[in-house]
Amino acid sequence: MSHQQLDDLNIESQDVLITPRALKEKLPLSDQAADTVYRGRQQIRDILDRKDPRLFVVIGPCSIHDPKAAMEYAERLKTLAAKVDDALFLVLRVYFEKPRTTVGWKGLINDPYMNDSFKVEDGLNIARKLLLDVADLGLAAATEALDPTTPQYIQDLISWSAIGARTTESQTHREMSSGLSGPVGFKNGTDGSLDVAVNAMLSVRHPHRFLGIDPDGRVALTTTKGNQYAHVVLRGGGGKPNYDSVSVALAESALEKAGVSTNIMVDCSHANSNKDPGLQPLVMENIGNQILEGNTSIVGLMVESHLKEGNQKIPANLDELEYGVSVTDGCIGWDTTEQAIVNLADKVRDTLPRRVRD
């Protein structure tokens, strides 16, 4: 009796990629880059521990598709960061992977040339090189940890990670987050519910064991220590915002009842701005007002911003792409970004030092 094929019936091909160790040897950290990442993580930890009174702001393009534009944005942000450093710690948003409800461009690592060629190894090289350039500039970087394999390639260059609304409930992402080297923010569910983020925070602080890859790309049983710097990110949901003072107070109560960190970060985009990027500065203004009125739980913000406002579809002819414009969610432009950041810093500068814990 002949055996019929049972394995890989729907697999067309498998290409072996460069190992994490080989990529890091090819594109190693400089001393400056390593110092930037170390200091970035520590400053965020100090903010979460209330040793540092500042707010940290993860800000930048919805996604990275053009390294040249990303570096121009990074250089501008570095200059702006120095102006507001006494009130705000600015962290560059460098998102290389995009979750998709159905189909669409999955980000620079998966499809760096935006033509469905899926040159993933090229994407990994481009992503790591950009992160090195950003770190050498002295700017801390943040990303969304989406594919559980990717952190082995770039996590040594990341100061803060997000787990998105679609994956906060995922056991795989909770386990992975328990081993990430920097602080991690869990977004509330797409329906606005906080329970999934609370459960994620309860999970991530404990050790886990799961299948992963080692630095040489081999499948390995990975044992983590647990991540003590997880916190919630309010991003709205179900068509409603949740950054207002009542929603924040309800979140504080739920987090305290669960016995997890009451540190709260607000995502100014998504449902909190009704998917209108132009409303993000109003959300920032509202958060500043809450802090003036005595709020002590909000420690950070997330803002989607690019060189130019709005967004664009990916054209068939990539030469038609407009420079400095997002190809995913709409962003506020640079002039608006700079004004909103300066306004927030000016508003909270004198109040923030009172929030430091002894």
Results as ranks from 00 to 15, higher is better:
Pro151Cys: 02
Leu234Thr: 01
Gly212Met: 08
Leu307Arg: 03
Asp111Glu: 04
Ile298Asp: 04
Ser269Met: 05
Ala82Val: 12
Val94Thr: 15
Tyr38Gln: 14
Lys308Asp: 09
Gly60Trp: 05
Thr149Tyr: 02
Glu75Asn: 14
Gly212Pro: 11
Leu194Pro: 00
Gly182Pro: 10
Ile59Tyr: 06
Thr336Lys: 07
Gly238Asn: 00
Pro61Glu: 03
Phe210Ile: 07
Gly60Ala: 03
Gly107Trp: 01
Val103Ser: 10
Leu90Trp: 03
Ala145Val: 04
Gly239Lys: 00
Asp85Cys: 08
Pro277Leu: 03
Gly182Asp: 10
Gly107Tyr: 04
Ile264Pro: 13
Gly300Thr: 05
Asn311Pro: 13
Val58Gln: 09
Met176Trp: 02
Ala200Cys: 12
Phe210Val: 10
His65Trp: 06
Ser117Pro: 07
Lys129Ala: 14
Ser30Ala: 03
Lys257Trp: 07
Ser305Trp: 06
Thr190Gln: 05
Ala81Gln: 14
Gln290Thr: 08
Pro53Phe: 05
Phe118Cys: 08
Gly40Met: 01
Asp133Leu: 07
Pro53Asn: 11
Lys83Val: 07
Lys187Tyr: 04
Glu293Met: 13
Ala142Phe: 01
Thr102Cys: 09
Asp46Gly: 00
Gly217Tyr: 01
Gly288Trp: 03
Ser297Cys: 05
Arg54Asn: 12
Glu75Phe: 03
Pro281Gln: 11
Ala141Thr: 13
Gly179Arg: 11
Ala249Tyr: 04
Pro353Lys: 08
Val91Met: 08
Ala140Ser: 14
Phe96Asn: 11
Gly333Met: 04
Asn317Ile: 08
Asp49Tyr: 00
Ala140Arg: 05
Gln152Thr: 00
Pro61Arg: 13
Gly104Gln: 11
Asn317Thr: 07
Ala340Lys: 09
Leu318Ser: 11
Asp111Phe: 09
Leu55Gln: 08
Arg128His: 08
His173Tyr: 08
Ala345Arg: 09
Ser247Ala: 09
Cys331Trp: 00
Pro151Glu: 10
Leu282Ala: 13
Ser177Pro: 08
Gly185Lys: 11
Ala230Met: 12
Met176Val: 06
Thr101Met: 13
Arg21Gly: 00
Glu338Pro: 01
Val84Asp: 10
His206Glu: 15
Tyr153Cys: 03
Gly217Phe: 01
Leu130Trp: 06
His3Leu: 15
Val232Cys: 04
Asp15Ile: 15
Lys313Leu: 04
Arg357Cys: 05
Ala142Val: 01
Arg174Cys: 00
Ala200Thr: 06
Ala127Ser: 15
Met265Thr: 13
Gly104Lys: 10
